[in-house]
Design a protein around this nucleic acid. Structure first.
Ligand SMILES: NC(=O)c1ccc[n+]([C@@H]2O[C@H](COP(=O)([O-])OP(=O)(O)OC[C@H]3O[C@@H](n4cnc5c(N)ncnc54)[C@H](O)[C@@H]3O)[C@@H](O)[C@H]2O)c1
Ligand SMILES: NC(=O)c1ccc[n+]([C@@H]2O[C@H](COP(=O)([O-])OP(=O)(O)OC[C@H]3O[C@@H](n4cnc5c(N)ncnc54)[C@H](O)[C@@H]3O)[C@@H](O)[C@H]2O)c1
Lengths: 245, 245
DNA sequence: AGGCGCTTGTGAAGAGGTGCACAAATCGCG
DNA sequence: CGCGATTTGTGCACCTCTTCACAAGCGCCT
C-alpha cells in the first residue's frame, strides 16, 4: 500500500540494477564489511576469505557468507573474495556509486562537530549545505561552507540536489525541521534529537540517541553487577534455561 | 549492535534482586519509553494507556505491553499505567537509580561536543573526566572539567569510580584506548571510532558510526529511486519505514 | 449490585535472523 | 590428470522478535 511519488523525479527506466530486496539486518552490516574491505585494500590485500573478512568486521563468518550471497556469487571457492570487486558490488547495492549530498540543519554544539568531520566525504557523502535558525549563526563559515538560514532550505535543497537531511537541532524544533525537509522532497533523515519524528510513508528516519546507548550499557552494567554479587554454583557453561510455558 | 556473549546461565538463579532477564530488543526500547514517560510527566499526565505511550515512543502498542510485562504487572486494566511508578520501575531495571560516571577519551572535534552536552546529566549520567593524548589539549577546561592526560586514566578512573568509557579518538588509537579502559576495570564502552574493538568477555561495546547510518539511508534512497523508476504492477509492496535502531 | 466499556497481559502463530554443518566448486601440486 | 586442501554457498534447525486476537480484570455508571 505504498504510493510514493518523487516530486520532479525523472522517469529513468534503467533496467540494469537487479536490486535484490535484501534483509534489513544484512543492509545494516554491509557498511561494516565495506569499511573492512577498504582497510584490506589499503594494506595491499587482493583477496580475502569469509573468515578473514568476518574477523575484520566483527561478525560470524557464516553470517557474512549468507549476507554476501544475497548480492550474488562474487566469491571463488577455494580462494575467497576479490576485494576490489566486492567493494564495487557493495557500493553499487548501497547506492554509493553516486556521491550523495547531505544537508545539515542545526549548527550548534553537535552540528559543528559534524560539519567539521572529514569522515563523511571519504565514505561517499558530501555535506552540501548547513542551516540554522539563529541569525547570529547564519553567515558563519565552517570547513569552507557558509551557514544559511533555514528559510533558504527549499531553494538550496534543489540547487544542491540534497538527498539526505541531518537534524541536529534541539528536540522541540526537530519535528518542524523534519516537516520542512520532507516538504522540499527529502526522503531520508538522520535525527540526532532525542524525540520521535512523525513523517509520511515513504520517508525513512534513522535516529541516533547517545543517551539511549548509555542507558543500554547501564542496564548491562547493572546486570553484570548483580551476577557477580551472587556466588551460586558456577557449574561450567549451563546456557540452557527454558522459559516457555 | 554490540556483540553479546552468553555468560553462563543468566536465568533466575538469584532470588534476591529479582533480576528479570529481559530480551535484548526490549532493553533497547526501554530508554525510549523512559523519555516518553518523562515528557508525559512534565505535561501533567498521571496515567497513560499503552496506546498513548506506544504512540509517544513510536512503537506498536502490543509490543509495548509485552515489553512492560517483562518487568512485572505495573498497569491497571481499564486505566493504564501510572506514569511516575513506571518511570521508577524502568529506571530501576536499567540501573539508573545511581548516577553513573562516564569517562570521555579523545577531546577533539566530536569530544568537545559531547563534553559540552547537557543532555547526559539530565538522563542520569555524569561526565566525570576528560582525557586526551595531545599535551596541548591537556589542561583545557570544558564545561567545568579539566582535560587530563590519558596516562592518568588509571588513577582518575578509581577516584571517580568510572563505570562507562566513551571513545572519541581517531580509529587507529581506539583499540589502544579500549585496552587501557579495560585494564582499569571499565566493562562498558561506547565507541565512536569507525573500527571494530576487540575486548575480553564480559565487556560490552556499543558502537555509533554515523557514516554507517548514512549508508543505510543511502541504500533505501537507492531502492526507492529504483522502485519509482520501475512502474510494474506491484503496488502492494510494502515499504518499510522508520527503521529501529 | 450488576452490567458495560475500556485496557492490560498473554498465548499462539508467523516472520525474520543466526549459526552449524556439509556438499559443491576451485586451485595447486605431484 | 587426478587428488587433496581449501573455501564458498546454502539447507536446516533453532532461536528471537513481532503481531494478532482475546480473555481477564478494573472502574464507572445506573
Ligand atoms: N552535543 C552533543 O554531544 C549531543 C549528543 C547527543 C544528542 N544531542 C542532540 O543533538 C541536538 C543538538 O545538540 P547541540 O548540543 O548541538 O545543541 P545546540 O543548542 O548547541 O545547537 C542547536 C542548534 O540548532 C539551532 N536551531 C534551533 N532551532 C532551529 C530550527 N528550527 N531550525 C534550524 N536550526 C535551529 C540553534 O540555533 C542551535 O544552533 C539536540 O537535540 C541534542 O539533544 C547532542
Ligand atoms: N566529528 C564528528 O562529527 C564525527 C562523526 C562520526 C565519527 N567520528 C569519529 O569520532 C572520532 C573522533 O573524531 P574527531 O572529529 O573528534 O577527531 P579529532 O581528530 O578532532 O579528535 C581526536 C582527539 O583524540 C585525541 N587522541 C588521539 N589519540 C589519542 C589517544 N591514544 N588517547 C587519547 N586521546 C587521543 C587527539 O588528540 C584528538 O584530540 C573519530 O574516530 C571519528 O572518526 C567523528
Amino acid at each position: 500500500m505504498s504510493q510514493h511519488r518523487h516530486p520532479g523525479a525523472p522517469g529513468r527506466a534503467g533496467a540494469v540494477p537487479a536490486l535484490p530486496d535484501l534483509p534489513e539486518a544484512t543492509v545494516a552490516r554491509l557498511p561494516e564489511y565495506l569499511r573492512a574491505l577498504h582497510a584490506l585494500a589499503d594494506t595491499g590485500h587482493e583477496t580475502v576469505s569469509s573468515e578473514g573478512l568476518a574477523n575484520a568486521a566483527g561478525v560470524n563468518s557464516a553470517k557474512l557468507r549468507k549476507d554476501l550471497s544475497h548480492l550474488g556469487s562474487y566469491g571463488t571457492r577455494g580462494v575467497g573474495y576479490d576485494v576490489t570487486l566486492l567493494i564495487e558490488q557493495i557500493e553499487s547495492v548501497l547506492g554509493l556509486t553516486q556521491c550523495r549530498s547531505v544537508a545539515l540543519v542545526g549548527v550548534g554544539n553537535l552540528g559543528h562537530a559534524l560539519a567539521g568531520y572529514d569522515g563523511f566525504a571519504s565514505r561517499g557523502f558530501r555535506i552540501a549545505a548547513l542551516f540554522d535558525a539563529d541569525p547570529s549563526r547564519v553567515g558563519e563559515e565552517i570547513n569552507g561552507l557558509v551557514v544559511r538560514h533555514v528559510d533558504d532550505l527549499a531553494r538550496v535543497a534543489v540547487e544542491e540536489s540534497i538527498s539526505i537531511g541531518v537534524i541536529a537541532t534541539p528536540a522541540p524544533a526537530a519535528q518542524a525541521v523534519a516537516d520542512q525537509l520532507v516538504a522540499v522532497g527529502v526522503t531520508s533523515i538522520l535525527n540526532f534529537a532525542p524525540c520521535v519524528l512523525s513523517v509520511p510513508e515513504g520517508v525513512d528516519v534513522r535516529k541516533v540517541d547517545l543517551a539511549i546507548e548509555l542507558q543500554i550499557l547501564s542496564f548491562h552494567e547493572h546486570r553484570k553487577a548483580s551476577l557477580t554479587a551472587l556466588p551460586g554454583g558456577l557449574a561450567a557453561t549451563d546456557t540452557q534455561e527454558a522459559i516457555g510455558t
